[in-house]
């Protein structure tokens, strides 16, 4: 190709006929300096969505802090003092703490071993970690109840193993998130080198894990714990359909007969979720790649 075929016409058609009349020095002008400004449409969108998202919270507060006539904190005190609330919350805490501990105790060593020695299992584990998306709680509960329910040959529900059933279910529901949180943390530190350095100093595998690995992935462990805990605290489907009277199940029932107290307790439940998620967001900011949203069907 020749240079001229490219260097041809151009100027007349690409430039407008805005001829400079005045001499060039006279062209200097002043403009208002525009800093980075939020576009108007963005302000409108963000404001409207803020209204949509805050209105239900406001309405809940209005109902929860009222006795039908005027403002009062009575429903909240009633709710907090209600034995049913206390029992169900205690039960929820019990399962959430146990699920969290189980998740940490099982997932952390496994993820460490996978990272260190069983890289080939990675794809299997990744597959398993999206499986709970395909099998949301409503499906899992059908499987669990037909396998371990009242009418099944292995009736865990009616045995002293009943708590294990719900914990096992919660463990599965939270697995994708706990695994990813811990795995991200493990990948961020060089597990192999750390382990080799530690064993060259004479530490065994377990000692290395507890004294070297665990401290270096502590943020990942915290976010895994928060994910497991908040998920278990708010879980309704498994608990309701397998018959565990946890806090969300109690919340459903109490609202039917004591709406103001119910709404007050809804606020309590919001606060619990908030605390968990905001703590998670704070941790996630310090560990890039951490997922804040559970993102599964609820």
């Amino acid at each position: 190709m020749s240079g001229t075929s490219i260097a041809g016409e151009a100027t007349e058609e690409t430039l407008p006929a805005m001829i400079v009349a005045a001499e060039k020095a006279g062209k200097a002008r002043r403009r208002v300096n525009r800093g980075p400004r939020v576009p108007v449409w963005a302000i409108v969108v963000l404001t409207l969505s803020a209204v949509y998202f805050l209105l239900p919270l406001y309405a809940t507060a209005v109902y929860g802090f009222s006795n039908g006539k005027h403002f009062t904190l009575q429903p909240l005190w009633d709710g907090l003092g209600d034995p049913g609330f206390q029992t169900s919350l205690r039960l929820s805490l019990f399962y959430s703490v146990l699920t969290t501990l189980l998740a940490l105790a099982v997932v952390a060593p496994t993820a460490y071993m996978v990272e260190l020695r069983f890289q080939r299992l990675r794809s299997t584990i990744e597959f398993l970690s999206i499986l709970p998306f395909v099998i949301p709680p409503i499906i899992l509960v059908v499987g669990l109840s037909s396998m371990y329910g009242i009418k099944s040959p292995v009736n865990l529900l009616a045995s002293s193993w009943a708590p294990v059933l719900l914990m096992g279910g919660y463990f599965i529901l939270t697995l994708p998130f706990t695994f990813r949180a811990i795995d991200n943390a493990l990948r961020a530190v060089d597990v192999r080198t750390l382990t080799e350095a530690s064993s060259s100093l004479g530490a065994g595998t377990i000692r290395t894990f507890m004294k070297v690995i665990v401290p270096s992935i502590s943020l990942g462990l915290v976010s895994a714990a928060l994910l497991a805990f908040t998920t278990a605290m708010g879980e309704f489907t498994l608990a309701a359909l397998l018959g565990y009277p946890t806090f969300p199940v109690y919340l459903l029932n109490v609202n039917g007969w004591q709406p103001h107290m119910g709404e007050a307790l809804v606020l309590v439940s919001f606060l619990i979720t908030w605390a968990g998620v905001i703590a998670l967001a704070a941790v996630a900011r310090r560990t890039p790649g951490t997922q804040v949203v559970r993102g599964g069907p609820m």
Binding site: L55, G234, I278
Partner: peptide
């Protein structure tokens, strides 16, 4: 972002009741 994380995790019974208080038969709105 933080609020989105919080809201994306709102679901289930509490969310249902928040909306009953808003748009239910005698909801605020």
């Amino acid at each position: 972002t933080t609020f989105s994380s919080v809201a994306a995790n709102f679901a289930g019974v509490p969310l249902a009741y928040a909306f009953i208080a808003t748009l239910g038969n005698s909801g605020l709105l």
